[in-house]
Design a binder for these strands. Sequence first.
DNA 1: ATTAGGG
DNA 2: CCCTAAT
Length: 653
Amino acid sequence: METVVAIEHNDDDGKLEDIGVDRSSFSLSSPKQIANPVVYKLVRVEGDGRLVPATDDEVMEMEDFLEHENSEMRVVADTGQSLECISIERSSSGKLRLECPKGTADADFGKLNAKLQYIEQMLQKVKQEERLRLSCESPVPSRVKKDSQCSDDKAVTVENNQSDAPHQEIPSLASSLNYTHSNQSGSVDQCSRPSEGVIESGSSASAVYSALKSNFSMFDGEICLDKLSIRELHELFKVTFGRETTVKDKQWLKRRIAMSLTNSRDVSATTFIIKDNKIVRKCEDSSGNGDAEDVISMENAPVEADVNLKDSSALEGCGTEDNQVVSETKMGKHNIEHGLGGEDHQKAAKRIRKPTKRYIEELSENESREPNPMASLSSSRNMGPGLSTTSYVRLSGDASSEVRTFITRVDSLGGSDVQVPCVSRVRRSHPRKDITSLTKFLPIDIAKTAKSDNKVLAETGSCAASENPDKILKARSAPGKLQPPSCEPEKEKQLPGVSTSEPQQELRPKRVDPFSHTSEDNIVTVPTAKGGMRRKHHRAWTLVEVMKLVDGVSRCGAGRWSEIKRLSFSSHSYRTSVDLKDKWRNLLKASFAQAPADEGMNVRKHGTAPIPEPILLRVRELAQMNSQAPPNFSSSKFLAGAGNALGDRPGYL
DNA sequence: ATTAGGG
DNA sequence: CCCTAAT
């Protein structure tokens, strides 16, 4: 159910086709009505055929889909019950097509496994904590209630007392409610190989109690998300997406998580699975050896003809192994090409650089500092007239804290207006030339931005896939102090007033909000010398991202960040190549700082989730291969403190 | 434009 | 993360 139907295309020829693959019967209802020239938003189709605005994550995932020109296999696990294989083709005519082919995507299973493992760990921890708390607190009964607001009867919402009722195990009611509905959605086109990596919800009430012990049950590689309490789901969510969520809708959570787990197949080529806390190549069965063997063989791999990874990926049922081989081969090739001596040489002679002079202007510029740069945000009003079909609406952020400004387009869609966030995340990167001159005239600037964004949309069919020039950097140095509005695709904020009637979608207010807060941008402003603040946004690295990075590195080699970015991160607008590099550096550090760590400070201190051992292991492995010297503590600051230096840091996301 | 390193 | 030097 709830297949993501993406329609994001500018139809010059009025041609746009989207075929939702849905088990249920919705197909007739939606697409045509939405498929109106102006704008196509990513929407999610609820089981009953309602359309719901997609979250940004969904957008991203969809972009993933679109990311490669040619068809590729995807596995999408939806919330609850089944796995669907969807492949997306985009023909030259620009049509989008979703279908459910017979192929499979084995490639993902390695990843999936890894993640599952990790998640299992996390859940264990959560459970432990809960148990702890349980012992300390007097039990508070948790309420289970059916949320009538949810899109359908399937959705069950469990609310706990805000004070954190220790009982997270939802009594059988929930679980039984939870997934008796499997047939409700009707028959499904299931992937022909449902057995693999299926995230299924076949929980029985009795299992609930067993879940108490192993909070997370995995049967034959299947996760029973159903058995998880909301709290656990939240934890899972956090781990998976790197951010908290307030959504109480179990259904939704599960779906999101399942999606993320299954869907991140960017990295499918270098699959590894985790066994007994060890990383094993996916092709283990062929070699039958441990990881070490594989690594070695990797280095010695003969040079073979390059095979296009993308093309080879997926469609073949047994593609995984092939992919693996290919990627390994590639690696070997690289190593050989660079040659041992050469590499040593390169590594040995690190770039030496003059001590950086930072903030030269700091000295010259004292007076002009604006105490509250945020004020500049307010200057963005008076939208330019003369925007034909679109108008801009400024939305102010939630009461919580920052004033966020959203630019939204209101497009007319078959008579009704739909508000659409105006795309493309503004991010640092390379400033556009013309931007500078425009900064003074904000409206124009915006107009221009919007236009170009539209163009991008038209061309790529996906919105955030394109990097957007950073206007902020330029802007902050501009005398006018005009902060260009940051219009991030992030979340769509539906204004109750404006949101209006989309064709057949009664957007319930409730539905709207959870996300707006969910993916909040952690943008902290940091005082900078140049009379302004620079925005330092912090996006926590999610497990998926890390994994992508890791095998991006394994594929391209460390150092080829732009490559990696193109390969694995094209759908994430943030994460520049530099970010990747930085993250890798950190990973390296973390991986070599391997820590027993344990009980004491382990979970408590860092809110962030630890990076699962296997990944660190992998990192180390790769580092070794590349003869990347682990950033030594000894070389750095504290020589003496060896003892604690070693033990202290497990890696953190 | 991309990468390495320092902060 | 951000910034700058180096390539």
